Computed example of a mutant assay.
Amino acid sequence: MNLPASAGLSFSSAAERMFQYNESEVLGEDISMLMPSPDRERHGRYLNNYLETGERKVIGIGRLTNARRRDGSIFPIDLSIGEAYGTEQRIFTGFIRDLTETRNRERRLQDLQHELAHVSRVTAMGTLASALAHELNQPLTAIANYMEASADLVDSTDPQDRDMLREAVGEAAGQALRAGEIIRSLREFIQRGETDRQSESLRLILNEGAALAFAGMDSSGIDFDLLVPSDADHVLTNRVQLQQVIINLVRNAVEAMQERQGRRLRISSKREPDGKIRISVEDNGPGLSPDIQKRLFTPFNTSKARGMGVGLSICQTIVEGHGGRIWADRSVLGGMAFHFTLDPCEEADND
């Protein structure tokens, strides 16, 4: 499309299709007829300013702007204008690319992104429900077992049975409180995206977490080591959430060693060169294939016949919420080693 200062000299067939004008309708007309407001009204002033001062705003530069079709519809274009000198007049040539399809693709991409966000929210709700079911299963099962034992003892008049009844009821109440703590802790984590952390002794939490994990499992014959040096003991953590990580990892390790003779489980901590505290849970089970290892922390991925595949995903969420990372590799014991890092509590270390 060639244009002098104000009138069209030629109009290509591509321009005819783009603007819905025949060439005969454009030739000799002011080119501003193809522009929407406010460019239409500004065109003459801009062109005169360029001819007088040489100040370029579009010519030789190009820009994204809008154009106007015969039917009045506006569409986006990529506009470039070249300049040439004829024998009698200055000639401007406009190169226009219709960006309608590009914009449509962008809008479609935005729509798909909104749809994906919606699906992600729904998936997150499903993951949360599964996570709650997974995490609450252990304390609720313990409550059921304690209450079943209590029912068998409630009619007994034997003082020893009465003592056992009181102990069972007390343990059930403790597990009920633990279930409430799990719900509260997960709710706070989701609402704030962070955890309430304070100085805690790793030795105590790891020991308690392992004991809770062993409850209801066949832990007989396991050679269990807990190695926590003094310089890798105190960490900044949420006690309940850290216990959840330990329970998941220990239960996985015990289940992995079911068919092993001479089962070995080791939980240890050490200070890393970057100052973080690394906690490791290692077993001498059969290990995992490389393919399974790649997907270990993906929700609903499991190698267990009846597993839900959310335990390790929960561990990852908790550890990353603490500002740490979690990974797995082969253990020197022969099975798997799961490692994760936490921030140290320097004040406690200096006590």
Rank of each mutant, 00 (worst) to 15 (best):
M1I: 07
N2Y: 09
S6W: 13
G8K: 00
S10M: 15
M18T: 04
Y21W: 09
Y21M: 06
E25C: 02
E25Q: 12
V26I: 13
V26P: 00
G28T: 08
E29R: 15
D30K: 12
I31E: 03
L34K: 04
P36T: 10
S37Y: 09
H43Y: 15
L47Q: 05
L51C: 05
E55F: 06
G60P: 01
L64I: 06
T65W: 03
S73E: 09
D78M: 12
D78F: 01
G82Y: 12
G82I: 07
A84N: 10
T87L: 11
R90Q: 11
I96T: 11
L99V: 07
L109G: 11
E115V: 07
E115K: 14
H118P: 01
H118G: 09
T123I: 05
T123D: 14
A124W: 12
T127N: 13
A129N: 15
A144P: 00
A144Y: 07
Y146G: 02
Y146K: 05
Y146D: 13
M147E: 06
L153A: 03
P159Y: 08
V169H: 09
E171Y: 03
A176K: 03
R178M: 04
A179C: 05
G180L: 12
S185E: 09
L186E: 05
R187D: 13
R192A: 06
D196T: 15
N207V: 02
E208N: 08
A211T: 07
A215E: 14
G221W: 07
L227R: 15
V228S: 00
D233G: 10
L236M: 14
L236S: 05
T237R: 01
N238Q: 13
V240W: 01
V240R: 04
Q241Y: 04
I246A: 02
I247K: 04
N252D: 11
N252Q: 10
Q258N: 12
E259S: 09
E259G: 05
K270E: 13
I277S: 02
I277M: 05
V281A: 07
V281Y: 02
E282L: 02
E282K: 05
D283A: 11
G287R: 02
L288M: 12
R295P: 06
F297G: 05
T302S: 15
T302C: 08
L312D: 00
C315K: 01
C315Y: 05
V319D: 03
G321D: 09
A328L: 12
S331F: 06
V332I: 13
G334W: 00
G334V: 08
M336K: 05
T341D: 08
C345M: 06
